[in-house]
Design a protein around this nucleic acid. Structure first.
Lengths: 118, 118
DNA sequence: TAGATAAGAAACCTTTTGGTTTCATAATGT
DNA sequence: ACATTATGAAACCAAAAGGTTTCTTATCTA
């Protein structure tokens, strides 16, 4: 199963898990011991995190190490950036509009001012 | 009620709503008309978005305009940044360690190299 | 080899989510 | 004044989320 990275980050426990293993990979029990919910509950969170690619579980003997995959967070920052672009375009447009209406009347040397982007 | 911004972003419909109104504030009906779920469903999403501060609803006559509040997204990018810092420290530490062990042998000014754990 | 340990799976429960339909209310336009 | 329109609220529902306890299955280790 694959899952949305935004959904993966939605739960605060999962974000805490990410912080925890960012520093150093830990096995499932070690992660769980830092929380006061059951190991099984934490295991489920880990499963979700791995389903959205934020974590990968590496088997090592009878243990399984939880390794952070922070590259996946780019999807988040990308979305935010893309969002900000839409947002700022809005003001660019307003800006342009304001310039246009405030433009002093000139001698008609040039018929039009145009093509000023960004 | 107040709500987690990460939770606000968890639902794809809500992210789409944000994109939609980033460009231009819209009233509730206009937002809803872009989706194939009911107006009431969209209204609920808008309520959630406003509960986590990503949107503010401005009354204007009998309509209510949905205005984006992108500043709130800083909480998200801040978290990601803080996360990356923890993450990169990990490699800084490894780096330092590698430098240390590759350090050429020197005259024995100091009797022992110690304290290297792990 | 037997007992302990680490983790995955299953069954179950409660609360939250995301949706619906229906009803109420407050501005607007005719 | 009256019908229309924009929105909010309520009651309800199915599915998902987050949790539990119990049971299996590997893998160590004494």
């Amino acid at each position: 199963m694959t899952r949305d990275v935004f959904q993966g980050l939605a739960d605060p426990t999962r974000r805490e898990i990410l912080n925890m293993i960012a520093h150093k990979s830990l096995n499932v029990n070690s992660v769980a011991s830092n929380f006061d919910v059951s190991r099984t509950a934490i295991y489920k969170h880990l499963k979700i995190l791995s389903e959205c690619g934020l974590v990968v579980l590496q088997q090592q003997g009878r243990e399984r190490y939880c390794e952070a995959r922070p590259e996946k967070l780019n999807e988040v920052t990308d979305w935010v950036e893309q969002y900000r672009q839409i947002w700022t375009k809005r003001f660019d447009a307003l800006d342009e509009y304001l310039k246009k209406i405030q433009e002093p009347k000139k001698t008609n040397l040039k018929p039009k001012k145009h093509g000023r982007k960004k």
